[in-house]
Design a protein around this nucleic acid. Structure first.
Length: 395
DNA sequence: TGCATTTGACCGTG
DNA sequence: CACGGTCAAATGCA
C-alpha cells in the first residue's frame, strides 16, 4: 500500500522543491522573483492596497524556504514508507480483522516499534490564561485521548493523545500533554509525528486557496502527503495576498501539512540578514523580528483558544545522512539501521511571546518572535548553508 | 448508537 | 526491573 510512494516521487518532489527553494532564495535577496508560481511577481500589493515592501518579500522568501523544509520532511516520510517498512500503516487496518490489536502488535512489533522513535518530535510549552485544573492547551487540532499516566517526579499525570483521524486517515500524529509542576498555567506538549490528515482546525476558516485536497488515495498517506504538499506549495503562493500574519487556523497558506520540525529550524530560525551560517556561526541568537513564521498549526494558538499569553519553546532532533553528494533527511528510524546511521542532531529553541489578548480573536502574530537559539550542530547546514537546489536539481 | 474518555494491564526500552 | 507508551474494555455523554 505504502509502496505507491516510490523513490521516483521523492526525486521529483526534491527536484521541484530545489527549484522553488532557489527561487525563494533569489526572492530573499531582493531580486525580482522570476517565477514563483507566477504569483509573487504578479502581485504587487495587498488586497487593501498596502504596497508589498521589501521586508515582506524577505518574509515570503523565508516562508518559502520553510515550506521547502517541510517538503524535505515529507520526502523523508515517503522515503521511509518506500523503504519497505510498514511503520506508518494504520493499526486500524488490523483492528478490522479478527485478530486483536494486541496480537497484531505482538506480531508486528518488529515493524512497528511501540515507541515510534523515528517520527518527528518536538516540544512546546504552552501557557494558558488560567490555572484552572481543567484547562488544557488547545492547538486547534482534534485529538483523542488514549491514555493517561502518572509520571515519576511529576505532580500531574501525562495525557496521551492521538489524532482523531488516526483510523480514518491513518494520521499518526500524537501528542503528550503534561502540566508543569511549577506553573499550573504551563503545559509541556510533546508532539510526535505530523498530521497527515485533512482535518480542519477548529476556530478556523480556510485561508484563501487553502482547499482540501481531492479525496482520493486516502489509503496511502504518503501519496496524500505529496499531494497535500503540492497543494500547499500552490496555496503558499496563491495565498500571498494574505497579510503576513497567519490568522485563525495557524496554517498560514501552507495547507494541511504539519511538519513543524524542519521548518522550524530552517524556515523560522534563519535570520533576516545574510550572516546566517549554521556551519560557521551557529549557536548565536538570531533576531527574528518581523520574520514571517512558518509554524505548523500545532505551533500556534488558534484564535479563540484558551491561550492568552503563550510562549513556545521547541526542541527537535533531526537526522540526516549523506548519500553520494546529497544530504538526505533520513528515514524515520523505524529500522535499526537508521539509528546506527544517525548523524547530526539539532536543537532549536525559539521563544515567542503572544501578546494578543485571549479571546480577542487574534491569531498568533508571527512578528512576535523575538528570540531564537540554534544549536551549533544544526544538521540543515548542507541544505541551507548551500542550496537544496544544488543538491536536488538533478535528482 | 456512536464517539470520547477513563483506567488498568500489557509490553518495549533503557 | 522500573518506567513510559499504548491498548482496549468499561464507562460516560450527546
Amino acid at each position: 500500500m505504502q509502496d505507491g510512494a516510490g523513490g521516483g516521487d521523492i526525486h521529483l518532489l526534491l527536484s521541484i522543491l530545489a527549484n522553488g527553494e532557489e527561487q525563494a532564495r533569489q526572492l530573499e535577496l531582493g531580486e525580482p522573483a522570476s517565477n514563483v508560481d507566477g504569483q509573487l511577481s504578479s502581485s504587487s500589493s495587498y488586497p487593501g492596497g498596502h504596497r508589498w515592501g521589501e521586508e515582506y518579500y524577505r518574509g515570503v522568501a523565508r516562508q518559502l524556504q520553510c515550506t521547502f523544509a517541510r517538503a524535505m520532511t515529507v520526502a523523508r516520510a515517503i522515503e521511509a514508507a518506500a523503504g519497505g517498512d510498514r511503520s506508518d500503516s494504520p493499526r486500524s487496518a488490523d483492528e478490522s480483522s479478527g485478530r486483536t490489536a494486541r496480537d497484531v502488535a505482538h506480531q508486528e512489533h518488529q515493524d512497528v516499534p511501540k515507541r515510534r522513535k523515528g517520527l518527528p518530535k518536538w516540544t512546546e510549552k504552552i501557557r494558558v490564561s488560567d490555572a484552572n485544573l481543567e484547562a488544557t492547551p488547545e492547538d486547534g487540532f482534534s485529538w483523542r485521548k488514549y491514555g493517561q499516566k502518572d509520571i515519576l517526579g511529576a505532580k500531574f499525570p501525562r495525557g496521551y493523545y492521538r489524532c482523531t483521524y488516526r483510523n480514518a486517515q491513518g494520521c499518526l500524529a500524537t501528542k503528550q500533554v503534561q502540566r508543569s509542576d511549577s506553573d499550573l498555567c504551563v503545559f509541556d506538549v510533546t508532539y510526535h509525528g505530523a498530521h497527515t490528515c485533512h482535518q480542519k482546525q477548529r476556530h478556523a476558516t480556510s485561508p484563501p486557496g487553502c482547499n482540501p485536497p481531492p479525496p482520493h488515495d486516502q489509503q496511502d498517506p504518503s501519496v496524500e502527503l505529496v499531494r497535500n504538499f503540492k497543494n500547499g506549495l500552490k496555496v503558499e503562493t496563491d495565498g500571498l495576498p494574505a497579510p503576513p500574519t497567519f490568522e485563525h487556523d495557524g496554517y498560514g497558506a501552507a495547507g494541511q501539512l504539519c511538519f513543524p520540525s524542519a521548518p522550524f529550524h530552517a524556515g523560522v530560525a534563519p535570520p533576516p540578514d545574510d550572516s546566517f551560517s549554521p556551519v560557521e556561526g551557529g549557536g548565536g541568537q538570531l533576531g527574528l523580528e518581523g520574520g514571517v513564521g512558518c509554524f505548523s498549526p500545532a505551533f500556534v494558538s488558534p484564535a479563540g483558544s484558551a491561550v492568552g499569553s503563550s510562549y513556545f519553546s521547541m526542541t527537535h532532533s533531526y537526522d540526516y545522512e549523506q548519500r553520494g553528494d546529497q544530504f538526505v533527511m533520513r528515514g524515520t528510524g523505524s529500522s535499526e539501521l537508521d539509528e546506527v546511521v544517525s548523524a547530526a542532531t539539532a536543537t532549536a529553541t525559539v521563544t515567542a511571546v503572544d501578546r494578543a489578548a485571549a479571546g480577542a480573536g487574534g491569531g498568533f502574530d508571527y512578528s512576535l518572535y523575538h528570540h531564537a537559539e540554534l544549536d551549533p550542530h544544526l544538521p540543515f547546514a548542507p541544505m541551507f548553508g548551500t542550496s537544496m537546489h544544488d543538491h536536488y536539481r538533478n535528482a
